[in-house]
C-alpha cells in the first residue's frame, strides 16, 4: 500500500521540531532578543502562500476577493521580512567584542 504524502510532511514537521529544540537550546541567552526577531522574520516565509493566493486567477480579473486577501498578506509578510531581518541585523551589529 502506498504511503500518504501527508505522512512524509508530518515526518518533516516532527523532525524539524526536534532540530529546533536542540538548535534553540544552543542559542546563548544574551541573544534571545535577536532570536525572537529572526524567528519572526523567517516565519514570514508564509509569503509563499500569499504570492500563490495573489497570482491565482481563473478569470481576467486579478482583483478577485481571494487575490485581495493574497495581496494584503503579501504586504503584512513583507513588513515582517524586511523589518525582522533588518532589526536583527541592527541588533547583532551592536554585539561587538571589547576593543583594546
Amino acid at each position: 500500500m502506498e504511503i500518504d504524502p501527508f505522512i512524509f510532511r508530518l515526518s518533516i514537521f516532527i523532525l524539524s521540531i526536534f532540530v529546533g529544540y536542540y538548535v534553540v537550546w544552543s542559542v546563548t541567552p544574551s541573544l534571545h532578543t535577536p532570536l525572537m526577531s529572526v524567528t519572526n522574520a523567517i516565519s514570514s516565509v508564509i509569503i509563499v502562500g500569499a504570492i500563490i493566493a495573489a497570482l491565482a486567477s481563473s478569470t481576467e480579473n486579478i482583483f478577485e476577493i481571494s487575490n485581495i486577501f493574497g495581496f494584503l498578506a503579501i504586504i503584512l509578510a513583507a513588513v515582517n521580512i524586511f523589518g525582522g531581518f533588518l532589526v536583527t541585523q541592527r541588533m547583532l551589529q551592536m554585539y561587538k567584542k571589547k576593543k583594546k
Binding site: P5, F6, R9, I12, F13, I14, S16, I17, V19, G20, Y21, V23, V24, W25, H32, L35, M36, T39, N40, I42, S43, V45, I46, V48, G49, I52
Partner: peptide, 24 residues
Amino acid sequence: IGFTLENTALIITGALVGSSGAIL
C-alpha cells in the same frame, strides 16, 4: 498553513519557530 500548501519550507520554519517560542 505549510501543511495546507504542502510547502516544506513553511513546515520546517513553523516547527522551528514553534519550538523556539516554547523553549523561551
